[in-house]
Computed example of a mutant assay.
Amino acid sequence: MERSIVGFHRDEFGDWVAELECGHGQHVRHDPPWQSRPWTVTAEGRASRLGYRVKCLKCVRQEPPAEWARRDA
């Protein structure tokens, strides 16, 4: 199931997490050579991905939304 990115926050280790419209989060690390996502390191880069759709495996598994999503509701 594809979901849109609606925001970003950092996890407890300082890594960026994309906040999805469904209430789940998905890490978007820039960790070359394994993961190349240079857009994550700037505010402008992250803003350019708002609305971008990604596959949410947590929705496929029917997991409840993340704590951060319930807290903000």
Score class of each variant (00 low, 15 high):
64 P>K: 03
25 G>F: 05
39 W>G: 05
4 S>M: 05
45 G>N: 03
45 G>H: 10
34 W>L: 04
8 F>H: 09
28 V>T: 11
65 P>N: 11
56 C>H: 03
43 A>K: 05
15 D>W: 10
58 K>P: 01
29 R>M: 04
62 Q>F: 05
46 R>Q: 13
65 P>E: 09
54 V>Y: 09
69 A>I: 06
17 V>C: 08
37 R>W: 05
33 P>Y: 06
44 E>A: 15
29 R>Q: 00
59 C>F: 04
24 H>K: 06
42 T>E: 02
53 R>P: 11
36 S>G: 07
30 H>S: 07
8 F>R: 03
66 A>H: 13
34 W>E: 04
37 R>I: 03
21 E>V: 01
45 G>M: 00
63 E>P: 00
28 V>A: 10
23 G>F: 03
16 W>F: 09
57 L>M: 09
29 R>I: 00
56 C>L: 00
29 R>C: 00
61 R>I: 08
43 A>R: 08
40 T>R: 08
62 Q>W: 07
45 G>C: 02
65 P>L: 09
23 G>W: 01
16 W>D: 09
22 C>N: 10
4 S>E: 14
4 S>Q: 08
58 K>I: 02
16 W>T: 04
72 D>Q: 15
67 E>Y: 07
72 D>W: 09
70 R>A: 12
8 F>Y: 15
57 L>I: 10
20 L>S: 04
11 D>I: 10
2 E>C: 05
53 R>I: 09
58 K>C: 13
66 A>V: 03
43 A>F: 00
53 R>T: 15
